[in-house]
């Protein structure tokens, strides 16, 4: 970095950067810090939305610790996090590897088409999939009936299959998006390293672990953290496709918060649940960022 502000060149230049970042911090303060503060306060109250919130200390948290729905929601959210990090992320890397093959034709067609689900509204995706997966009329069961004579699978009504279905939609929606990052990373790995590995007689697997993986480490870290944060607060897909059901089999923490606040008017309780999610997600992603050294100023 050359000497931009090293020369004593008047106050204006020293103040300019603060003025430039001010709009962000004003909005950040008003719509992030203040609400988090208000959330901390609300979480220690009992409040139905009318009148004055009644201070109850840590009761909400104690109740959350005993609430089986909340446990279920935490468990389900964890399952969706695992699906994202252990299935969606590796699948994107695999597709990126395939798209990175030398001399592949129509690479852009594949890249762009795989990305399109990310562009669509979750509601559009959800309603198309709930029609496709419908037990009685859905195309998926019609195909199964035609092929195997048995197509009465209740894709959205069976506890396990409902999770699988939501997981599949997550995969379908996110994989093309994450592929973009991996593909760019793969293309940035210096070719000499591959040539050196080839000279050393390394096979494809060895090349992958010794050259490719280290070369794409920063992007992998970024993708893993992004997927973690995104899936830990999952709401749209399960809310729209299964409504959290059957029972509470696809209820996530974000849905738990929504229901507590807007179905049952337990605003304090909802705020407490939101805060628990915040602590978990923020804590884990700060640790991941530190471990993987993401987001440093250059």
């Amino acid at each position: 970095m050359t000497s931009l502000s090293t020369r004593p060149d008047g106050k204006r230049r020293q103040l300019a950067p603060y003025a430039f970042i001010a709009p962000f911090y004003v909005l950040y303060g008003l719509f992030m810090i203040v609400p988090i503060g208000a959330g901390v306060y609300l979480s220690m109250t009992e409040w139905v939305g009318l009148g004055t919130p009644e201070f109850v200390g840590l009761d909400n948290f104690a109740n959350l610790a005993r609430d089986t729905s909340f446990h279920k929601a935490l468990g389900n959210s964890m399952i969706f996090v695992l699906i994202s990090v252990l299935i969606v992320v590796p699948a994107s890397l695999l597709i990126a590897q395939a798209l990175n093959t030398r001399g592949l034709r129509a690479r852009d067609l594949f890249r762009v088409t795989f990305f399109i689900p990310m562009v669509l509204s979750p509601i559009v995706i959800a309603l198309v999939y709930s029609l496709l997966l419908d037990r009685d009329y859905g195309l998926v069961n019609s195909v199964l009936r035609a092929l195997f004579g048995a197509g009465t699978t209740d894709w959205l009504g069976d506890p396990t299959l409902a999770k699988v279905s939501v997981g599949f939609v997550l995969l379908w929606r996110w994989v093309g998006y994450l592929t973009i990052f991996f593909l760019a990373a793969l293309q940035a790995v210096p070719r000499e390293r591959y040539e050196a590995a080839e000279l050393d007689g390394a096979g494809p697997w060895r090349t992958f672990t010794a050259v490719t993986l280290p070369g794409i480490r920063p992007v992998t870290a970024f993708v893993v953290v992004t997927s973690f944060i995104g899936s830990a607060q999952l709401f749209d897909e399960p809310f729209l496709i299964t409504g959290g059901g059957p029972g509470e089999e696809t209820l996530t923490v974000a849905m738990f918060v929504y229901r507590a606040a807007f179905d049952r008017q337990q605003f304090g309780y909802a705020a407490a649940a939101g805060l628990v999610l915040f602590v978990i997600v923020f804590g884990i992603s700060q640790i991941l960022n530190r471990l993987l050294s993401i987001g440093r100023t250059s």
Binding site: A38, G274, F282
Partner: peptide, 23 residues
């Protein structure tokens, strides 16, 4: 300031949903 900005990426929306709505 940069790391404060960057860390806001890891704030799940569910935590501000209720208080922001109320405010």
């Amino acid at each position: 300031l940069f790391s404060v900005m960057f860390s806001s990426l890891s704030v799940p929306f569910a935590v501000i949903l209720v208080p922001l709505f109320v405010l």
